[in-house]
């Protein structure tokens, strides 16, 4: 599957503590300091939308954000431009960018530890219905690369996969492990 547009969201714990508007100056500072590997462009405020994108940090290569979709908050990144490598490599690249943002946000002094990412629950979504519609066939084509990537990410620890059931929603899965995993450990595996 020649999928390049997809994303990850690592869910936050106790996320209601996070003041979304407090993220705006943080993301602007990240642009000033080139804090992430992408070419960071701008900040978007969608805090007025329930279960929406929250606050986004727009980059050339993709979009970072503290997302509220599904009424669940988390750090999200999705790619918007072509990526290099095969699909497992691309999955690792995008997951790594998501985790870097998650770690940075968790360590952000201005937020006083409000953002906590336990690392034991993530959502993957294919953001390209032309290549990867939410069908059994597309999932079958994706699954080997996805499992290979998840095996690497969770280093053999057991995990469960739950597919997005609504065919109109993007092809996606929610992945859970029993125990929390430190972001640092996840990053090291990528």
């Amino acid at each position: 599957m020649d999928l390049h547009k997809f994303g990850f969201k690592f869910f936050a714990a106790d996320a209601e503590r996070v003041d979304l508007l407090a993220l705006i100056p943080v993301f602007h500072r990240w642009i000033q300091t080139d804090a992430l590997p992408d070419l960071l462009l701008d900040v978007g405020d969608y805090s007025h939308l329930p279960a929406g994108p929250g606050i986004i940090l727009v980059a050339h290569e993709g979009t970072y954000g503290f997302d509220e979709a599904g009424h669940r908050r988390g750090v999200q990144y999705y790619s918007k431009r072509p990526l290099s490598g095969d699909l497992p490599e691309r999955l690792a690249t995008v997951a790594r960018k998501t985790l870097l943002a998650a770690r940075l946000l968790a360590d952000e002094p201005e937020l006083n530890g409000a953002v906590r990412i336990p690392g034991n629950e993530l959502r993957f979504f294919a953001n390209d219905r032309l290549i990867a519609p939410n069908t059994d066939e597309a999932y079958a084509a994706l699954e080997p690369a996805l499992r290979s990537f998840l095996d690497r990410l969770y280093a053999g620890a057991p995990y469960t996969i739950e597919r997005e059931p609504d065919p109109r929603e993007r092809l996606g899965v929610t992945v859970r492990t029993e125990q929390p995993v430190a972001l640092e450990a996840l990053l090291e595996r990528l």
Binding site: K5, G44, Y46, G52, I56, V58, N127, D128, R129
Partner: peptide, 23 residues
Amino acid sequence: DLAEEYSGAVLHVTTRQDIQLHY
């Protein structure tokens, strides 16, 4: 769908009854 895949998952309705997708 297009807003999700090509923009930022937001549809913006304008004062001319258009829809705009950004980014």
